[in-house]
Design a binder for these strands. Structure first.
Lengths: 199, 199
DNA sequence: TTAAAGGTTTACCGATCGGTTCACAATGTC
DNA sequence: GACATTGTGAACCGATCGGTAAACCTTTAA
């Protein structure tokens, strides 16, 4: 039972959903674009919603892995990684098929907080937030929670603005703002090497 | 020329589109929820897309008027108004029917930059940006363009984060960040009588 | 040899999609 | 009274929606 047609389906469905949206993408279109029969689809997923959730799960995994890895590649220190995030965002925005964030779009199409798709989108954002908070703590932030929330605002704002496309370097703008916010939250000499267990 | 059925239609369609999305809202549903006959709709608007564009036009007008007026009510000075924007956002987020920004959702459902709906959404954001840039200039910002772009990032990020709902005061977070960014961009003595906003 | 298991194709279902047609009723305004 | 404007209800269009049904093909493994 190695990675079969099921994973292939989810992978391809992910792209189509990202490009064209969820409601606008019919199952027939997925059949046409993936080459996988409708019968097979409905053997793996009982409803379209289940397929969407699987696609979002895969996207969350792929995106977070990519983001975190790139951040670590770019900078060794926690503070550097926080700043690196915006450089990575810039790389993302520059990709020709960039179309805003899949989870922002999903939460837009399924706006009720109780809806599974909305909830899963929120969870993705929450996971990134906690990662940033950990980095902020390691970077010696006075209030890691506040700093992480502020950086999240810049990140989400940069994504939306990049997609709306009336500013041409929203990642750069966010980076500049992030510098200011980090500096204002990190005590001068407390930077670097915050022991996991504080004194 | 008092409010005709046409305006009534656009007004009601606006609400339905905002709540349920664009693709997910069929014309039959609009007939049911607005009480206006399908025939009349298609006499005023030749396609669903034209109706959507009219609804977005109305939304842009209503929202910007409301935002700008509230900002002026809260604070007399340009700097105060910039900060007041985030207080106004907080009021917006607290409304029970808040469902993120209509234009972010629209650009998510119509992601191609050339699409009229996408373009009109971008224009709405651009208009707000220029307003903020004017205020930033009046507030004595060293680089009004940069400051306005940064504040826009906070604003869009706050909207998205408020809708995703894993942080409970994204407007407050944005306000705190905005203070830092404004202070770092406005020269010490160039500032004119800042009467800071409460909260 | 046999037989699931996983895949395919094709056709089909009722419902809804965006959009049209037609006959007709209420509303002025001259 | 005449006439256009603006609206109505209901039936209808072909296409597409999410989802099923039935028959067959192919691989894997007991």
């Amino acid at each position: 039972m190695r990675p079969t047609k099921r994973d292939e389906l989810v992978q391809k469905a992910l792209r189509v959903f990202y490009r064209h949206g969820f409601h606008a993408t019919g199952m027939d279109r997925l059949v046409a674009e993936t080459g996988i029969s409708k019968t097979s689809m409905y053997k793996h997923f009982r409803t379209k919603e289940e397929l969407i959730l699987a696609a979002l799960r895969l996207r969350d995994e792929q995106f977070r892995n990519w983001l975190y890895r790139r951040m670590e590649e770019i900078a060794p220190t926690p503070r550097g990684q926080l700043l690196a995030m915006f450089q990575v965002l810039g790389e993302w925005f520059a990709q020709p098929d960039f179309q805003s964030c899949m989870f922002i779009k999903a939460s837009g199409e399924y706006p009720e907080p109780g809806h599974p798709i909305h909830a899963q989108s929120a969870e993705h954002k929450r996971l990134i937030f906690t990662h940033l908070r950990d980095l902020a703590r390691q970077a010696g932030a006075r209030d890691p929670d506040v700093l992480a929330r502020q950086l999240v605002l810049l990140k989400e704002g940069a994504i939306v603005t990049a997609h709306l496309g009336y500013a041409d370097d929203s990642a750069g703008d966010a980076l500049a703002a992030a510098r200011v916010l980090i500096d204002s939250n990190v005590a001068e000499n407390a930077e670097e090497v915050a022991s996991p267990v504080s004194v």
